[in-house]
Amino acid sequence: MSRRRTAILISGRGTNMSALISAAMDPGFPAEIALVLSNRPDAKGLERAAEFGIATAVVDHTDFAGDRQAFERQVDAALKDHRIELVALAGFMRILTPFLVNAWSNRMINIHPALLPAFKGLATHERALEEGVKLHGATVHYVSAEMDDGPIIVQGAVPVLDTDTPETLAARVLDVEHRIYPKALELVASGKARISGARVTAGGNDGETAEPLIWP
């Protein structure tokens, strides 16, 4: 089996990065983590990746004087230098321009701590509690030019409890993130995930869905 060379882009500690690395340690997993790249040289996740013997790279966005496309061209060059085939954003705190999104169209995925299309952007757990929703969760989706948009690959849901605070809700959602992101990468790297308009199916040649696209 040919494993797809995958880069993980991070800005901080990289907890979802660790979940992906753990999944990819299985030789039967269809993706190998070939690079961890950060826009911050002090990102704790870089140390964690190095402990696993994974190549790391830093493209510091502050070196580009607000020129986002110049920054992204350097990121793109680093990805190509490492012969990357797929990109997984894991807490990469940069708004992407169409340049990088188009360069990696249908080959870049992201995880967001909400059940998209609800609660795009930041402070998702606080907003979920304020709105009184009964279900909250996380979404893995293909990256598109619009923030927190793009065809949904996998979602995972948790109940919102009356006693929840943003911190307790965030902790349960994070557990779901660690479960669904490896599943989504597996579907994409194996070629099972197929985009049809705004939808993603993960079935056989007959188009029937053969893989769960929601957790649990």
Rank of each mutant, 00 (worst) to 15 (best):
R3G: 06
R4P: 04
R4Y: 04
A7L: 02
S11K: 11
S11R: 09
G12K: 12
G12H: 09
G12V: 10
R13C: 12
S18N: 12
S18R: 14
S18I: 12
S18E: 12
S22R: 14
M25H: 09
D26H: 10
D26C: 14
G28F: 01
G28Y: 02
F29Y: 01
P30H: 00
A31I: 07
E32S: 15
A34G: 14
L35Y: 15
L35D: 11
L35V: 07
L35K: 15
V36H: 13
P41M: 05
P41N: 05
P41L: 02
K44E: 10
E47F: 09
R48G: 02
A49W: 07
A49G: 09
A50N: 12
A50L: 14
A57S: 11
A57F: 03
D60G: 07
H61A: 05
T62P: 00
T62K: 06
D63E: 13
F64N: 03
R68K: 05
Q69R: 09
A70F: 05
A70P: 04
F71Q: 03
D76Y: 00
A77K: 14
L79S: 07
L79M: 02
H82E: 15
R83L: 08
I84T: 15
L86E: 14
A88V: 01
F92K: 06
R94G: 02
F99G: 11
L100K: 07
L100T: 03
N102Q: 15
A103V: 04
N110F: 08
I111N: 09
I111W: 04
H112Q: 08
P113S: 06
L115F: 07
L115V: 05
L116V: 01
L116I: 00
A118I: 02
A118Y: 08
A118S: 15
L122T: 02
E126C: 10
A128S: 10
V133C: 02
V133F: 03
V133Y: 00
L135T: 01
H136P: 03
G137E: 05
G137D: 06
A138V: 09
A138Y: 02
T139E: 15
H141L: 15
H141A: 10
H141M: 13
A145T: 09
M147G: 04
M147W: 15
D148W: 08
D149N: 13
G150Q: 04
I152M: 12
V154R: 10
A157E: 02
V160R: 14
L161M: 14
D162F: 11
T163P: 10
D164A: 13
T165D: 03
P166K: 10
T168I: 13
L169W: 02
A171R: 14
R172G: 06
V173F: 00
L174M: 07
D175K: 13
D175I: 00
V176G: 04
E177L: 01
E177F: 02
R179I: 08
I180M: 04
K183S: 06
A184L: 05
A184S: 02
E186V: 05
L187E: 06
V188Y: 15
A189N: 06
S190C: 06
S190L: 01
S196K: 11
G197P: 06
G203F: 05
G204A: 08
N205G: 15
P212K: 13
P212I: 07
I214Q: 11
